[in-house]
Design a protein around this nucleic acid. Structure first.
Length: 469
RNA sequence: CGGGGCGUAGCGCAGCUUGGUUAGCGCGCCUGCUUUGGGAGCAGGAGGUCCCGGGUUCGAAUCCCGGCGCCCCGACCA
């Protein structure tokens, strides 16, 4: 009965802890082909919740869902020089199909700018067709040398938005809108993830973009994770794919395009951002199971009470599940803790005799005896309290591990345990190389007040540097 | 692709140095009974190409040669 930890403690070996959580919370398994991932039902349920929240915001931002093919002619990639250069190393290419060698190899999409560009060119005739705002939910393939479940897999799931606009300003504004109203809003409100919003330095830009925006989150081990990005592609892809429109004056003009994405990497981010030594901790608004009603004993009155409580919570829109399975009570609690279910309602004969149940919060393990008729209200209150507490805690951890420094040397020191912030002018080409040689990268550029710059050439920019996933 | 580690039951490992009967242990799984307020107990049971291919030997998980795969740390990336 002596409680021995089920997971490797974070302090002992963080990567090991991560793998333990993924396995024991039944989130995913390695697929048979190196780098591939089997997403198990619980992991997929979390992804579906992310999808639902992000999809809703994308639609509110005016984009429509569509679907483009998995297979892309290889020649498409050669039309944009930087794009092909950036992606060639990780392309999976089909050279043989239908029992024959293919005349032209087919690339399994690593991202869809090229095919979508081709069709944008076809669909856009007039300024009246603009802006064209598309999104697709899809799988993509990027051959990975060093895969990790959710964080880096050779195949992963994501959404990729692709838009075309008449002007640079309109495209830039839309990319920014997505960044703030879709990604940052989702990250803050649902994932309880505080991030640093900024733009990437030129070296870290998306292949073919003129500007890349990022939401950089800090994991519990102090490393950075890019949780979503939004790109201004300028006219690079418009040129490569002839995405023209006719303006009011009847002149042909090149479009300005954007693309933006968030992937199943977010699930990895969720684990490493909020997880603790007892396992995953899922923010209530994200959780596929928000409340688990646990029968302390498998007895009729207890089970009936569980069902009544669950039905009533369900009626109030709470995502709830009853656990009246056999097996030891302690074991079941541990299992729910590893899965990170935000709130537990423990229903036992002793409490029940007094008209009580016990509510337990996953984030701080606080136990609260609550009268049966007050459960609904308390659950709602605690879920909200936990949601904001998780964001506040994460922000405190992030701020506490972000150090202002004045030189690259100091930044290297600070990046061993967290983020370092320093004037971008102190870094430069040479400084960036020095950082990179220490496995540290410039995660983003920000204005002094923390807001997002428009370009990397603005004066007085800070940069945030860190080790990253 | 560089540097380290490891391949033995579903998972985690011992055994290998010094070859020798039926290859073990923990967890998990199955059956039964007792249990159930923080990973339950007892009894019984199922489960193995010892990564693969060669070689040495009377005999190889163990020694030799060659492959393959996985994990961790770097370079690349969402």
């Amino acid at each position: 009965m002596a409680s021995q930890s089920v997971l490797t403690p974070q302090d002992e070996d963080f990567p090991r802890w991560y793998q333990d959580v993924v396995a024991k919370a039944e989130m995913a398994d390695n697929g048979p082909v190196r780098g591939t991932m089997v997403i198990r039902p619980y992991g997929y349920a979390i992804w579906e919740r992310m999808q639902a929240e992000i999809d809703q915001r994308i639609k509110e931002a005016g984009a429509q869902n569509a679907y483009f093919p998995l297979f892309i002619p290889e020649s498409y990639f050669h039309r944009e020089a930087e794009h092909v250069e950036g992606f060639s190393p990780e392309l999976a290419v089909v050279t043989h199909a239908g029992g024959e060698d293919l005349a032209e190899p087919i690339v399994v999409r690593p991202t869809s700018e090229t095919v979508i560009g081709e069709f944008m060119a076809k669909w856009i005739q007039s300024y009246r067709d603009l802006p064209l705002l598309l999104n697709q939910w899809a799988n993509v393939v990027r051959w990975e040398l060093r895969p990790r479940l959710f964080l880096r897999s050779s195949e992963f799931l994501w959404q990729e938005g692709h838009t075309a606009h008449a002007t640079y300003e309109d495209a830039a504004a839309y990319a920014m809108k997505i960044h703030l109203e879709v990604y940052n809003d989702f990250l803050e409100k649902v994932l309880a993830a505080p991030t640093y919003l900024g733009i990437k330095p030129p070296t870290e830009r998306f292949a073919g973009a003129i500007n890349t925006m990022t939401c950089e989150g800090m994991m519990r081990d102090g490393k950075a994770l890019q949780m979503a990005t939004s790109h201004e592609l300028g006219q690079n892809f418009a040129k490569a794919f002839d995405i023209f429109y006719q303006n009011e004056d009847g002149q042909a003009a090149l479009c300005h395009t954007t693309s933006w994405g968030a992937s199943t990497r977010l699930v990895g981010g969720l684990i490493m951002l909020h997880g603790d030594d007892s396992g995953l901790v899922v923010p209530p608004r994200l959780a596929p199971i928000q409340v688990v009603v646990v029968a302390v004993r498998d007895e009729p009155e207890v089970n009936e009470a569980c069902e009544r409580i669950a039905q009533s919570l369900k009626g109030e829109g709470v995502r709830v599940q009853v656990d009246r399975g056999r097996g030891s009570f302690g074991r079941r609690l541990t299992d729910w803790e590893i899965k990170g279910v935000p709130l537990r309602v423990e229903v036992g004969p002793r409490d029940l005799a007094q008209g009580l149940v016990t509510l337990v919060r996953r984030d701080n393990a606080e136990k609260l005896p609550v009268a049966l008729d007050a459960v609904g209200g308390e659950v709602a209150r605690l879920l909200e309290a936990m949601q904001s507490a998780m964001f506040d805690d994460a922000r405190q951890r992030r701020d506490g591990a972000t150090v202002d420094v004045k030189s690259v040397a100091e930044a290297v020191e600070a990046a061993q345990t967290g983020f370092a912030r320093l004037p971008w002018s102190q870094v430069g080409y040479k400084g960036e190389n020095e950082l990179n040689s220490q496995a540290i990268t410039v995660r983003c550029l920000q204005r002094r007040d923390g807001s997002m710059p428009v370009t990397d050439t603005e004066d007085e920019l800070d940069c945030i540097v860190a080790k990253s996933y």
